[in-house]
C-alpha cells in the first residue's frame, strides 16, 4: 500500500534519506532516469525527448519534525521544531529519533502536580522534553546524537467513510499522487521532482526548477482543511471530500488566472470534483518555483488534510483518487496543446 509506505517513512526537513529511498524504489520501474541533486531532491525523467510543453510536477518529501539540540544531565532530550509545529499538540506524543528510530515520549508534568494556574496555560516548547528512558546524559548520548531528528509515530490506517489517518500526509499524499502519475504514460516531456526542505522555507524547489527549466510547473500538496465545528465558510480553507483544491492565493503565490482557469476547465471536462483553496496563509513549492529564472507558469493542486502539521492527520481517499485523476487529465490536455505557456 503506497500511502502506508510513504507516510510511515522517516523524513523531517533536511533528513529525507529514508523517504527518498522508498520513493526511488517505487518509481524506478516506471521512469527513464532518476538522480538526486546536491540538496537531495529526487528528480525523475520520463519521455523528456517527446514534443510538447516540458512539465515539472513537484511534491515535497520532507515532513515537519523535531531536532534534538541538548541533553540534560538526567538524560532528557531538549528539542526544536523543524517546520511549523504548534507546541500545544506535542504533549504526551510518542516519537522516534534518529536513524536507529529510538522510541521516546514527549513528557510533561502530570495533572496531579500542576498548580491551578499551570492547568490554564498551554505548555511552551521550553517546558517540553523527550524522554527515551535513559538513566543519565551519557546513556542518552549512547542512543541519540545532538542534531538527530525525531518524527511522529502514527501508523497509516483507513478509517470511517473512505478516510485515512497517518502522520505526514503533508506532503506524502502529494508524493503518492506523483508516484502514481509517473506510472502512467503521457505524450509530453515529464519531470517529477520529489523535493527537500519545503517545511523550512521552500528551499529545495527553487534549485530544481532552475535546473530543469520547465515550461509549466505544478506543486502537488496536502493543504490545510478546517471544515469542522463552528468554522465559517471563509475560515475553512478547504472541505474534506470535495475534491482536489486549486490555489488562488497563498502566502507565496497569487495564482496565474489563465492557468487556474485551464485547470478548472479540465476538471469540468472530465467531471472531476474540485474546489478552490480559500485562505491567505500557508504556501507550497510553487511559491518558490514561479520566481525562478524568467518566471514559470503553473499552480498548486492539493489534497485537503485535516490536522495538518499535527501528529495524526486525516484525508479523504476520494480526494486522493480525484487528485490523481485531475493531474492525469491536466497532463493529457497539456499534451494535446490545451494550454500555451
Amino acid at each position: 500500500m503506497l500511502l502506508k509506505k510513504l507516510t510511515e517513512a522517516m523524513g523531517p526537513s533536511g533528513f529525507e534519506d529514508e523517504i527518498r529511498n522508498v520513493i526511488r524504489e517505487e518509481v524506478t520501474p516506471y521512469v527513464d532516469k532518476h538522480y538526486t541533486d546536491v540538496l537531495g531532491t529526487l528528480i525523475c525523467e520520463k519521455g523528456v525527448n517527446k514534443n510538447g510543453p516540458r512539465v515539472m510536477l513537484d511534491a515535497h518529501m520532507d515532513e515537519v519534525g523535531l531536532m534534538i539540540v541538548h541533553v540534560e544531565e538526567n538524560g532528557l532530550l531538549r528539542f526544536r521544531p523543524l517546520g511549523g509545529i504548534d507546541p500545544r499538540v506535542l504533549v504526551s506524543k510518542p516519537v522516534q529519533i534518529g536513524p536507529q528510530k529510538r522510541f521516546g515520549v514527549i513528557g510533561a508534568k502530570p495533572i496531579h502536580l500542576q498548580s491551578p494556574e499551570e492547568r490554564t496555560k498551554p505548555l511552551s516548547l521550553k517546558q517540553l522534553y523527550i524522554d527515551i528512558g535513559a538513566k543519565d546524559k551519557d546513556d542518552a548520548l549512547s542512543a541519540v546524537k545532538l542534531g538527530d531528528v525525531a518524527m511522529f509515530t502514527t501508523k497509516y490506517e483507513e478509517i470511517g467513510d473512505h478516510c485515512a489517518k497517518a502522520k505526514s500526509f503533508d506532503d506524502r499524499v502529494g508524493c503518492a499522487v506523483l508516484v502514481e502519475t509517473l506510472k502512467a504514460q503521457f505524450d509530453l516531456p515529464l519531470y517529477g521532482a520529489f523535493t527537500v526542505q519545503e517545511e523550512i522555507g521552500l528551499r529545495g524547489a527553487g534549485p530544481v526548477a532552475y535546473r530543469l527549466q520547465p515550461d509549466i510547473a505544478i506543486a502537488l500538496e496536502g493543504t490545510v482543511c478546517f471544515d469542522v465545528a463552528d468554522a465559517p465558510g471563509h475560515g475553512q480553507s478547504t472541505i474534506m471530500g470535495k475534491g482536489p483544491a486549486l490555489t488562488v492565493h497563498d502566502g507565496q503565490t497569487i495564482a496565474n488566472r489563465r492557468f487556474l482557469e485551464f485547470m478548472m476547465s479540465v476538471a469540468e471536462k472530465y467531471s472531476i470534483p474540485y474546489q478552490l483553496r480559500r485562505v491567505k496563509g500557508g504556501s507550497n513549492d510553487y511559491g518558490a518555483i514561479h520566481k525562478v529564472r524568467e518566471g514559470i507558469i503553473g499552480g498548486g493542486i492539493s489534497v485537503p488534510v485535516r490536522y495538518i502539521h499535527a501528529p495524526t492527520q486525516l484525508i479523504s481517499l476520494d480526494d486522493y483518487q480525484n487528485t490523481i485523476r485531475l493531474v492525469s487529465a491536466i497532463l493529457t490536455e497539456l499534451a494535446k496543446g490545451g494550454f500555451t505557456a
Binding site: 465558510g233 471563509h234 480559500r278 491567505k280
Partner: peptide
Amino acid sequence: IHIEDEGFLRVIS
C-alpha cells in the same frame, strides 16, 4: 475568497 449564500463576499488582503 468566499461567496456567502446570502450574496455577500468575504475577502482577504
